[in-house]
């Protein structure tokens, strides 16, 4: 600010100064304690190069507690142990099953080809 000749206060025009921070105030006491914000990937994904996301668009698998709009986190490197949920192919089509005792076994399933084991099911909360 400066006084103009006629004695009026002339305000300096506001200038956009993006990129230049004018720090006032006390420096943050948290400066040395900053950590990256929680990332879901860290918790849900162990092998990113083998992990695929798949969306379920029906209530066909409600008996497996997988509901419409659920997102499946599939890790193809996870071993298909008995009882695990898995995305499989039956007659050329994707399907979700619980892995039976012996792979490709008869237990209520026709022969299937494993696509990947489901490690997490993210259902929409009602």
């Amino acid at each position: 600010m400066k006084l103009s000749k006629v004695g009026k206060l002339s305000r300096k025009q506001h200038r956009h100064t993006a990129g230049v921070s004018v720090q006032t105030g006390f420096p943050s006491p948290a400066t040395h304690y900053l950590e990256p914000t929680i990332d879901l990937h860290q918790e849900l994904i162990t092998n990113a190069d083998a992990t695929f996301f798949v969306r379920v668009s029906s209530n066909e698998y409600a008996h497996l507690k997988i509901y419409n709009e659920a997102v499946l986190i599939i890790d193809r490197s996870t071993p298909a142990l008995k009882g695990k949920l898995a995305l499989v192919i039956i007659d050329g089509e994707f399907s979700i099953i619980k892995v039976p005792v012996s792979q490709g076994g008869s237990e209520a399933h026709k022969t299937f080809t494993l696509w990947g084991v489901i490690n997490y099911v993210i259902n929409k909360a009602i």
């Binding site: 798949v54 066909e60 995305l87």
Partner: peptide, 9 residues
């Protein structure tokens, strides 16, 4: 793309 991930019915 989330909008294009594999869909299973």
């Amino acid at each position: 793309q989330w909008s294009e991930i594999l869909e299973v019915k």
